[in-house]
Design a protein around this nucleic acid. Sequence first.
RNA 1: GCACCUGUAGCUCAGUGGAUAGAGCAUCGGACUUCUAAUCCGACGGUCGCAGGUUCGAAUCCUGCCAGGUGCACCA
Length: 577
Amino acid sequence: MADPQEVLSRRVQSALGAAFGADYAETDPVIRPSQFADYQANAALALAKRLGRKPRDVAADIVAHLDVDDVCREVEISGPGFVNLTLREEWIADRAQEVLADPRVGVPRQDRQNIPIDYSAPNVAKEMHVGHLRTTVVGDALARTLEFLGHNVIRQNHIGDWGTPFGMLIEHLLDTGEHSAEAELVKSDPNAFYQAAKAKFDESEEFAARARARVVALQSGDPETLRLWRELVDLSKVYFNRIYAKLDVTLTDHDLAGESIYNDMLAPVCDELERKGIAELSDGALCVFLDGFTGREGKPVPLIVRKSDGGYGYGTTDLATVKYRVEQLKADRILYVIGAPQALHLQMVWGAARAAGWLPDDVTPFHVQIGNVLGSDGKILRTRSGEPIRLMSLLDEAVERAAKVVAETRPDLDEESRTAIAREVGIGAVKYADLSVSHDTEYTFDFDRMLALNGNTGPYLQYAAARIRSIFRKGELSPEEATGPITLTEPAERELALALLGFGSTVHLVGDSLEPHRLCGYLFDLAQTFTAFYEKCPVLKAGDGATRASRLALTAATLRTLVQGLELLGVHAPERM
RNA sequence: GCACCUGUAGCUCAGUGGAUAGAGCAUCGGACUUCUAAUCCGACGGUCGCAGGUUCGAAUCCUGCCAGGUGCACCA
């Protein structure tokens, strides 16, 4: 690995072992970025107590046993016992050269795991909202990143395609006619269809009765009812896929794993829980009570697996997902990219699954908590009239706003190019805004900020990439032709090369922590470092051929890192902006 | 009442137990005969919610309190 932190860690560990014995060879050398050097090793301070010696003496001992001549040009003890490490320019240049030549841009593969990721999960015949947007975008970034790291990612789009609402939806479909204009609304404006059905359900007792009867028919597997149900699901798929296409996410029909596929598992799940004595009847409902889960007035909170009317809720389905993902998908890790408010529910589902033996200790479920999206008023994002915002119109607005800017700044480009740029910038901005803040906190939705060319935004990163591409166009050569050799003389060149070396460890960190915003932070830092380089170091007009070749190579490596990083986030970098 | 999450610059947010807590926006001042000035540089701006504790060292770990948000039996 090209990562200096990794390399220095190993070297300092060897020194620790040599200086203090084999017991210390595994100690964390605590390598951190330093403001006084490139990196600093802080192990001496922590070890001083354990060794019963002065920190500075411990540091001196470490340095005496440290073999880093090929990596560092300066090793210095400072302060109470920090070991400051300054890298050799040649070493940095060589590593940057490796990154440039590496098809994986310095990101080693990890041991392959099976990782089902549950994300997006919209409801049939319902509009997606900003909450769906965020789980879709974050889940997709995690899927792309883990896949790139070498894992077998199994996307699980747990759509809401089953349950009591389908009684009224199917009856409404029959009333309007299967191929009517109203039915077609499910493809484009599903809420209009849903609300019409709901209104009738509330107003007409006759309709409500039909709806309830229809639910029974659906659950008992009546063929004609199932056909109508499938019709609704198919209409919804059209809507989902339009959103996914616009968003440029990787979900396809192949990834659909809705609630309905678990139907056959629900009764056996309940039976097994009952047989194992994990579930018990309470007020007519079959419930699992787990230690440590109490609600109001200290009463135990149940996980209801079978309602008193005999129906199944989402608790049962979620238990079935665990079973399915462990047994059928052979999961090593299971990711649930769903709303933060579901935390308690998931804890109970996993607790019950563990108790039932469906979730072995070596399988780790993980809740990637998605925080609410708020408007500028600090409340859940809504339109001015108080209705939930339709996702499609929100995306359209982002593209429109981007188009307005492109029209002003790039009148030289033809209409078609401007439209394409606006689409990539607008959508990229929305996605990046979702990804660049930690996923578990609420965040404030603000078009102006996410579309800004300054700051930690999608457009800023896209622009950095576009400028690099512009350099190569102007120089009439392709980035692939820029092979160096890289030599570092200017500070800005050194900074840029060093920044490039951090990509691999950052991607690994994202894969382990499941926090895409860390990649955003890295890419933003890289783009800023590049911009400083761009200001200070002419590339095409460099003084001599060797400098030009080196800077072109650094520029090419930056482009590849930015493009690859953005791709892991699901953001496309346009050729020009 | 119980549980979880959050509290960092005027605003939006980062921050791996390490030295003087960082970005962006906003404000103020500067930079365009130079590879895309939609980009850059500088300045200003902080009792890291409060109080204890652990530690050589705490925004970070622990405890208590305060404030905001969310969840807590048959919707999913």
